[in-house]
């Protein structure tokens, strides 16, 4: 029996190690290739993993001012920060209203938003572009424009957060109301402190999304390089033939983006797990 258990465990470890290798491989490759200088070792993705000589050329290039890399980075960071801030506020407001209060139109609103959510987002791309343009929020103004669009519709993403609110006993509210506290006071000074995990989860998810936003960002900012975000600017390096020898630079740029985002994520991983599992269980 004991022997069987040991064999079982050994097999499990073997499988887990293989899985880990597969999962880490692309990241190891990415990091290693970012240290390969295009000047000494040509080729897009060469057929060897470890560069023959390590070089920081690609990283130097990113900060050399030849491209707007620092600017793109800053844009993305700004977008991510403000989206995380406002989106969290909006989602909390909506969740509180829908979870704790009963008013006419509540179920209608929830059903209506559910239906809206079934339309694919890209459908409205051109329309949003021209709407933003009316306010001067495209091209030069693309950064605030992207923030506006991301937060404007964020009210519809209340599900996970509302699920959490629902688990807080209503009796708490009722007791406070009998003591004369207003709804606003209950929300701010009673509910908010006990839902810290979900606040962090919501903000984290909102913060991560703009780093990947290629589709809409490219549509809103087109033709104005200084307002691109990293995703828009750097996919060009892989997709467009204008950029010769940029693949290793893409790797370097990718590493610099991934490291802080990944660290932040790992640091807050606990809350993230709580959020996704909570969300999944409640549907």
């Amino acid at each position: 029996m004991k022997k069987k258990r040991a064999i079982e465990n050994a097999v499990t470890y073997a499988v887990l190690i293989i899985i880990s290798i597969i999962w880490l491989f692309p990241f190891v490759g990415l990091v290693l290739q970012s240290f390969r200088s295009y000047a000494t070792e040509y080729g897009g993705m060469v057929n060897y993993l470890v560069p023959k000589s390590f070089s920081l050329d690609n990283y130097k290039f990113l900060f050399s001012g030849e491209t707007n890399y620092v600017r793109w980075y800053a844009n993305t960071l700004i977008i991510a920060f403000f989206v995380a801030l406002f989106q969290t506020i909006i989602i909390l407001c909506v969740s509180y209203a829908l979870s704790r209060m009963r008013f006419t139109g509540r179920t209608f609103l929830m059903k209506f938003w559910l239906i809206l959510g079934m339309f694919p987002g890209f459908l409205t791309m051109i329309c949003l572009y021209f709407l933003l343009k009316q306010f001067g929020l495209t091209q030069e103004g693309a950064v605030p424009g992207l923030i506006l669009v991301s937060i404007a519709s964020s009210g519809m993403q209340y599900y996970v957060c509302k699920g959490f609110f629902d688990t807080i006993p209503k009796a708490l509210d009722e007791a406070a109301r009998i003591d004369g506290a207003s709804r606003a006071r209950i929300f701010v000074s009673m509910i908010l402190p006990i839902i810290k995990p979900i606040i962090i989860y919501t903000a984290l998810v909102a913060f991560m999304a703009p780093w990947c936003d290629y589709v809409f960002a490219s549509y809103v900012a087109f033709g104005h390089d200084p307002s691109y975000n990293v995703a828009v600017a750097m996919t060009r390096w892989v997709w467009t033939n204008d950029y010769q020898g940029y693949f290793t630079r893409f790797c370097a740029g990718g590493v610099l983006i991934s490291v802080p985002v990944t660290l932040l994520f790992m640091f807050l991983q606990k809350y993230y797990v709580e959020g996704v599992t909570g969300g999944a269980v409640k549907g």
């Binding site: 572009y129 021209f130 087109f222 033939n241």
Partner: peptide
């Protein structure tokens, strides 16, 4: 002067002539 490659220029111009170059 802004960097928009020959490949993208036409597509971008057509999307919004007035905002284009």
């Amino acid at each position: 002067v802004e960097a928009t490659g020959e490949g993208d220029a036409a597509g971008n111009m057509i999307t919004d002539v007035k905002a284009g170059a």
